[in-house]
């Protein structure tokens, strides 16, 4: 758990971060979102003390981080940055092994861990371990960056616009993999981005920052239903509802009962594994008023426009 209390950073007369307080629960995926210059990266860098706060505190599991050695603190927090920051003079193996080496693990354990991490991020260890960073594509390099951050199994992962420099298709794939990794590993993640889609897709809670102030800190659904200010409402815009629909799986929605004689092949239908947004697109695309929901070809129930919208309105839990 990370507790940030009254955190402030001033550079001369300029206040980059102004008394920000927020708590990131164990295993929670928090996104720091805001336009450039909003102070989101500074907040992130104060968590691992790459930047020292002017005032305020950061507590890690109740311990004030100011009392720890910065190097030791950083070894307990994976760190992923936009331009990967892979060490060009080291092989992928050695890059991934960095923190375990710093922690003095023995060689066999490191070797095993490197393979495990490369597998985890979808890179074949035999192919990639002996390569050098300049031999990788942007997407591959960023995966290695994530593998390096996770190598020593840190409870916390800090990510500073990690997917900002890769092409849109790769970015989308990396986002989905990040979501999968979080579901699997339940790390406490603090993730900085200015991309609203990315934030809404990934976050358990979003901290929206503006000019160093925390505007609102809440789940995306809550930001939609109860925006704390006009700024919050304006920042997310009209599309927030649709974006939130992309977070939820159709199977989490209460379907309407179904006439047992209907078959999946006969009428417009969707699989229950799709997101609400995809179901809505299907509904509009079929020019239908309702869709039959199927699970592996067997009809399960019926959804219509009203069910889809209501699923968000009652603030049901994210998928």
């Amino acid at each position: 758990m990370i507790e940030i209390a009254d955190l402030t950073k001033r550079y001369g007369s300029f206040t980059a971060v102004d008394s920000v307080s927020l708590t990131v629960e164990q295993g929670q995926f928090t996104v720091l979102l805001g336009p450039s210059g909003s102070g989101k990266t500074t907040v992130l860098r104060m968590i691992n003390r790459m930047v020292e706060p002017t005032s305020g505190r950061v507590l890690l599991n109740g311990v004030d981080t100011a009392t720890m050695r910065p190097e030791s603190l950083r070894r307990t927090m994976g760190y992923v940055i936009q331009n990967t920051g892979l060490f060009p003079n080291m092989t992928i193996r050695r890059n991934v092994a960095t923190v375990p080496r710093l922690l003095g693990w023995d060689r066999r354990r490191i070797e095993e861990r490197v393979s495990e991490m490369l597998d985890l991020v979808g890179l074949d260890p035999d192919t990639y371990a002996s390569k050098y960073p300049h031999q990788l594509s942007g997407g591959e390099a960023q995966r290695v960056g994530v593998a390096r951050a996770l190598a020593a199994d840190p409870p916390v992962l800090l990510m500073d616009e990690p997917f900002g420099a890769v092409d849109p298709l790769t970015r989308e794939r990396l986002q989905l993999e990040m979501k999968r990794l979080h579901a699997k590993l339940r790390k406490t993640i603090v993730f900085v981005t200015h991309d609203i889609d990315e934030a809404v897709l990934l976050a358990d809670r979003i901290a929206l920052l503006r000019e160093g102030h925390l505007e609102q800190y809440a789940a995306p659904e809550k930001l939609w239903i109860e925006p704390a200010s006009e700024f919050v409402k304006g920042f997310f815009g009209e599309n927030l509802g649709l974006r939130i629909m992309a977070r939820h799986c159709l199977s989490s929605v209460p379907f309407k009962p179904l006439d047992p004689s209907v078959s999946c092949a006969a009428a417009p239908h969707v699989e229950d594994s799709v997101t609400l947004k995809e179901a809505l697109a299907e509904l509009v695309g079929a020019k239908a008023t309702k869709l039959i929901v199927c699970h592996e070809g067997a009809p399960r129930g019926v959804v219509d426009f009203e069910t889809l919208v209501k699923a968000l309105g009652d603030g049901s839990a994210p998928a």
Partner: peptide
């Protein structure tokens, strides 16, 4: 930045 960030 990354070198500092991983705790070197």
């Amino acid at each position: 930045d990354a070198a500092r960030g991983v705790g070197m």
